[in-house]
């Protein structure tokens, strides 16, 4: 069995300070991921040092604006553009902002809506 994983809930305002703290502690950014839970969106920031993961969770609504941590971790821009394109959450101040062209999708913000392909006969609905 692997170690249990704790995800600490924080507020939107703490995102940047926690990122700064993580960088000071010599942690690397592992990933930023988003999940839709009913009407809310959970964004999880994961940092790692010596295979010990530290995770922070924020809960936001659609069209909320979250601060970018790409000023602290340059590589965060890929995750932040992804969150913007797939979920429609605005991220303020990304260093390389694709402005919604990172993923070209048929449906705008596909992960924020329920999708049923009407014209397809063989699918589980």
């Amino acid at each position: 069995m692997m170690e249990p994983q704790l995800i600490t809930p924080i507020s939107i305002g703490d995102v940047v300070t926690k990122a700064e703290q993580a960088k000071k502690d010599g942690k690397r950014l592992v990933q930023i991921g988003c999940t839709k839970i009913e009407d809310n969106f959970e964004i999880i920031y994961v940092y790692d040092k010596n295979y010990q993961m530290t995770s922070y969770r924020i809960t936001v609504k659609q069209d909320d604006e979250i601060p970018s941590i790409s000023g602290i971790y340059f590589g965060a821009f890929v995750y932040e553009n992804e969150i913007h394109d797939l979920y429609g959450i605005h991220v303020k101040g990304i260093n390389i902002d694709f402005k919604g062209t990172f993923y070209k999708t048929t449906i705008k913000h596909p992960f924020s809506v329920t999708i049923v392909k009407e014209d397809d006969t063989c699918q589980n609905k």
Partner: peptide
């Protein structure tokens, strides 16, 4: 080494 670490 540093870039590799912090760029992910």
């Amino acid at each position: 080494k540093e870039d590799a670490y912090y760029l992910g």
